Computed example of a mutant assay.
Amino acid sequence: MQHRSVKYKSWLWSLFYGGCTLAAIMLAGCEKEPVAAAANVGVQTIPLHDTLRKIITENILLTNNHPWYIEGWVYVSNEATLHIEPGTVIKIITPLSAYGKESGGGLVITRGAKIVAEGLQHLPVLFRLNDTTCNTGWKGIILLGKAPQTGAGKVLENISSLTGSTGLAYGGHEPEDSSGIMRHVRMEGMELLLRGTGSRTVITDITIQPTGNKPYHLKKVSLP
Rank of each mutant, 00 (worst) to 15 (best):
G189S: 07
T163K: 15
G180W: 14
G145K: 00
K139M: 08
T201S: 10
S160L: 13
E176S: 13
N158R: 06
I203R: 04
Y170F: 15
L168S: 09
L194I: 07
T207F: 06
G164L: 05
S199Q: 12
G212A: 02
Y170H: 10
S179M: 08
T197G: 03
L218H: 06
H184S: 12
I141L: 15
L156W: 00
T136V: 06
E191I: 12
V202M: 13
I206N: 04
I159F: 04
R186C: 10
D177G: 06
V185W: 11
T207M: 10
N213Q: 15
T166D: 14
T166W: 10
G145S: 03
V202Q: 14
G140P: 00
K214G: 04
S165W: 02
L168R: 04
G140I: 01
G198D: 05
S179I: 00
M187L: 14
T204K: 15
D177V: 04
M190A: 10
K214N: 13
E174F: 12
I141H: 07
G198I: 04
T163C: 09
I203W: 01
P210T: 02
G151P: 01
L168K: 04
I159V: 15
S179H: 03
G198W: 09
G153Q: 01
G137Y: 05
Q149W: 09
E188M: 10
G151D: 02
L144P: 01
A152P: 02
D177T: 04
G212F: 08
G140H: 01
G172I: 03
G140Q: 01
L162G: 05
T166F: 12
L218Y: 10
K214P: 01
I206W: 04
A152G: 06
H217R: 14
Q209D: 03
K154S: 14
D177H: 12
L194W: 04
E188W: 11
S179A: 14
S160N: 08
G189E: 06
A147L: 04
D205I: 01
K214E: 13
K214Q: 14
G180Q: 09
T136Y: 11
G167V: 00
G189Y: 08
T163N: 12
N158V: 06
R195F: 08
S199C: 09
S165I: 07
G145D: 00
G180V: 04
M187H: 07
Q149Y: 09
T150A: 08
T204G: 07
S199Y: 09
S179Y: 05
R195Q: 15
G137W: 02
R186W: 11
G198C: 08
G153E: 00
A152I: 03
P175Y: 09
L143W: 01
